[in-house]
Amino acid sequence: MTSRISLEPEAVLDVLRTHFDIPADTAPDTDFQNLGLDSLVLIELGVILTQQYGVDVAGGELAAAGNAAKAAELVSAKAARS
């Protein structure tokens, strides 16, 4: 069975705003590093996204993605493969 999750970058930003207090005006292409998000935060973000969307997302994958737009693409691609 194929999941049809098409995650928008705004959904990732909403998680970041809610759980990690990033600025409200953060753009989807703002680098996680520029936001001061370290590896522990990205691991926590991965856990939250995994719980919300049912796909396994690792902190290292999010670090490699680098921003909310690419993180949304990652989750969507993983969901399409599951």
Rank of each mutant, 00 (worst) to 15 (best):
Gly46Ile: 02
Pro23Cys: 00
Ser39Tyr: 11
Gln52Pro: 03
Ser39Asp: 12
Ser39Ala: 15
Leu45Pro: 04
Thr50Met: 02
Ser39Met: 13
Ile22Ala: 04
Glu44Asp: 11
Thr50Trp: 03
Asp21Val: 11
Gln51Tyr: 09
Ala24Asn: 08
Asp29Cys: 05
Asp25Pro: 08
Thr26Asp: 12
Leu42Lys: 11
Ile22Gln: 02
Leu45Gly: 06
Pro23Tyr: 05
Phe32His: 01
Tyr53Trp: 10
Val41Lys: 09
Pro28Ile: 02
Val47Gly: 04
Asp38Arg: 03
Leu45Trp: 06
Gly54Ala: 05
Tyr53Ser: 01
Ala24Tyr: 14
Ile48Asp: 13
Ser39Asn: 15
Leu35Cys: 15
Val47Pro: 04
Asn34Val: 10
Ile43Lys: 10
Phe20Thr: 06
Gln51Leu: 12
Gln33Phe: 10
Asp29Ala: 13
Leu40Val: 13
Leu35Phe: 13
Tyr53Arg: 08
Ala24Gly: 06
Asp21His: 15
Gly36Lys: 06
Leu45His: 01
Pro23Val: 14
Ala27Lys: 13
Pro23Glu: 05
Ile43Ser: 08
Pro28Ala: 14
Val41Gln: 09
Leu49Gln: 08
Gln52Ile: 01
Leu37Ala: 13
Phe32Gly: 08
Asn34Gly: 13
Leu37Pro: 07
Gln51Asp: 12
Gln33Ala: 14
Gln33Asn: 14
Asp29Tyr: 10
Pro28Glu: 10
Asp29Met: 09
Thr30His: 02
Ala27Phe: 06
Leu35Glu: 04
Glu44Val: 03
Asp38Met: 08
Val55Asn: 04
Gly36Pro: 11
Gln52Leu: 07
Leu42Val: 04
Phe32Val: 12
Asp38Val: 03
Thr26Tyr: 01
Asn34Ile: 09
Val55Trp: 07
Pro28Leu: 14
Asn34Tyr: 11
Thr30Ser: 14
Ile43His: 06
Leu37Tyr: 14
Gly36Arg: 12
Asp21Ser: 15
Leu45Arg: 01
Ala24Cys: 11
Ile48Gln: 12
Phe32Cys: 13
Tyr53Phe: 07
Gly54Cys: 03
Ile43Val: 13
Leu42Trp: 05
Thr30Asp: 05
Thr26Glu: 05
Val47Trp: 05
Tyr53His: 14
Gln51Pro: 08
Val41Leu: 07
Leu42Ser: 01
Pro28Lys: 04
Thr30Val: 12
Phe32Arg: 12
Glu44Arg: 02
Glu44Ala: 09
Gln52Lys: 14
Gln52His: 10
Asp29Trp: 04
Asp29Thr: 07
Ala27Cys: 09
Glu44Leu: 02
Ala24Glu: 15
Gln33Arg: 15
Phe20Trp: 07
Phe32Leu: 09
Ala27Leu: 14
Pro28Gln: 03
Glu44Gln: 00
Gly36Ala: 03
Leu40Glu: 02
Thr30Phe: 08
Val41Pro: 04
Ile48Asn: 02
Leu42Asn: 09
